[in-house]
Design a protein around this nucleic acid. Structure first.
Lengths: 358, 358
DNA sequence: TCAACAAAAGCAATCGATTGCCTAAAATAA
DNA sequence: TTATTTTAGGCAATCGATTGCTTTTGTTGA
């Protein structure tokens, strides 16, 4: 009976030990070696004022005791936590996943880690993400705003807290921050000009939410191309909010039912919308590209697989991510650069495939 | 001249202020209200021992002074930082991006944030990621190991530090941790059985690196299906390391050149490999699915777009992510559950499309 | 052998929030 | 009115690493 109870207690203490194993600190190392914690700290950080002999002893003991630095404590003291926060609408969208991969590639080299948040296209949630990251005192916040974006006070607040802010792709234009952008207008203009050159004359536009700069810019590029080539702007060919495959399909159905249907569609929102358009056209026995040209945006992986393959615009997303991170590291210490409204523009690339080759 | 210098100093101090604006702490609030920091802390955390009047005053003042809690300091004191670390081979692969999105959905609800690392399929880098996360004292580490995975001492070390560890998809079988897995063997068996039922008799296997459990399991499922239906195992139809589109294409070319080529290919590695196979077959004027059946794995978005559409296996990746996070939150405090070798298995789903419909 | 100096190691404050314990004040009961 | 109990708020230690300053030890040169 006694033995049973003893075993029980032993069990409980084991569990407790498992839950909260006391982690080894520099104090433990110091005590073991009869040294002062400061010496241990200096040894571990390659600081001066430690003899080579004790330094090696400390390093060896730390290794033996399985010591791991507590970055939380170190960060509190030094005030710099090597962490960068990233806020995107969705982690699992190709473009954003690639940008993050690009950022990570650079930050990893520098020994920084990334904290990722997704806003789910909701402004409310975006604000919460910003709060989380500012509370954590991250070294920098990188953001592409949600579709639901309304006002930028939460972004201004980041700056007020003294945290460098880098916006990319979808940005609040009016805010004076570092920005890494695609030249959407030029890309759209190039795409539409290409279609005009191929002989398309009634080019429809599938546009995205106009509160986002990127969709405004793409529309501007579309309009500029028409103007340049003396083509009229036909309002009934401009379809609002067609930025998913389904919405793209719906918009295309409407377009193709017009008395004077378009002979081409520029799905400025995404390749998904372009795919929706393609499927609708194919379903109606309309020949692509002969009767209808289609151009997408974003260079999704399925673009080459579709039949016909889809002309699109590549945004160099991984490069974009790398550029963002480099922008931070090139000027990490200069307070003034933050206010200089530094903008880096990446030139997207038109990828011509079969869907516009009449 | 004096004025010039003064201006200069002013400039410099401005820059300095921008770089390191002193952030408002509870001490600032306490001083302003002639209170003790402890009261401020209690007021902000809804702790007791503060009158409603002072509490409201404190909250109002905190708001006015634009106070943001310093989570680093709070975490150091409480020892619990609401952060979960995730290590995956690549952030920008569909499957992993979706799993992360699933994890994030749950952790966000709980007020936790995610630190994401990618191992780039390198064991060395994976170890560094583990170090970073343990140093940060994250509350939990979630990992899917790299293709380069050799030994699991770094994972054991996570447990030694008392950090709960959840492995998913690609796991170190021998380690006693929580695991969330796909039932790869059953799924593979189901897929191959389906092909056999459709009349395919010489089914080739494109297999992945056998140091990864998932590829071993899929192979086992393939073998079990053959055995069950009394089909012989033909070694020359089993192709090693065919786990990208290119490698899948190369393997397929070899297979189709055999004296007795296969009449079906099970690309157990990915839809990409299946796509490679499909393109090679199409290029050789071999009819899919009439002359050659093809089945992939992972349900990539292009599966429906390919011609013919590709039969595949959906891994329910977002659900998997959610399950992982829930597993952590259901048992966050129970030391014993960690050692119970808790395994959750998610049943993948065979998605039959045209590429196997002879 | 001793002064002068350099190197090594110790001391103690600090970062900012949290929390157990204690005291003062207010509210209630006797 | 006094005794007793709540309630509000203050004090000080704590989490673990870092770092300026001081003290001790060791080395070099005279």
């Amino acid at each position: 009976m006694h033995i049973y109870i003893l075993l029980c207690l032993f069990e409980i203490s084991t569990i407790y030990t498992m839950k909260q194993p006391k982690r080894v600190t520099i104090y433990d190392i110091a005590k073991k070696l009869n040294l002062n914690p400061s010496s241990v700290s200096r040894a571990l950080n390659n600081g001066g004022n430690v003899s080579i002999a004790t330094k090696e002893l400390i390093l060896k003991t730390a290794e033996e005791m399985n010591y791991k630095v507590n970055s939380v404590a170190a960060n509190l003291r030094t005030g710099n936590n090597q962490t960068i926060g990233v806020i995107v609408p969705h982690i699992n969208q190709n473009f954003f996943a690639n940008v993050i991969a690009g950022i990570e590639e650079v930050t990893y080299q520098k020994g920084y880690s990334l904290v990722i948040c997704q806003s789910n296209e909701s402004a409310e949630r975006e604000i919460k993400c910003v709060d989380t990251l500012t509370n954590q005192h991250v070294s920098c916040i990188i953001i592409s705003v949600s579709a639901d974006f309304k006002d930028s006070s939460h972004l201004e607040n980041i700056q007020k807290q003294g945290i460098p802010l880098i916006q990319f792709d979808r940005v609040a234009d009016e805010l004076d921050t570092m920005k890494v952008l695609n030249d959407n207008e030029s890309a759209a203009m190039e795409a539409v000009s290409h279609m005009i050159a191929k002989g398309y004359k009634r080019i429809a536009l599938l546009e995205g939410p106009q509160n986002l700069n990127i969709f405004r810019q793409r529309k501007a590029g579309y309009l500029r191309a028409l103007k340049k080539h003396n083509l009229p702007v036909i309002p009934e060919l401009i379809m609002e909010n067609a930025w998913t495959k389904e919405l793209g399909a719906t918009a295309t159905r409407k377009l193709l039912k017009l008395a004077q249907p378009p002979d081409a569609i520029f799905a400025s929102t995404s390749d998904f919308a372009a795919l929706g358009a393609l499927e609708v056209a194919t379903g109606m026995n309309i020949q692509v590209p002969q009767q209808l040209g289609i151009c997408g945006y974003s260079n999704e992986s399925f673009g080459t697989i579709a039949n016909p393959s889809i002309t699109t615009i590549d945004q160099h997303s991984i490069l974009m991510g790398k550029t963002i991170a480099q922008l931070y590291f090139n000027e990490p210490d200069s307070g003034i650069s933050i206010s200089k409204n530094q903008i880096v523009s990446i030139r997207p690339e038109l990828i011509i495939r079969d869907s516009t080759l009449k």
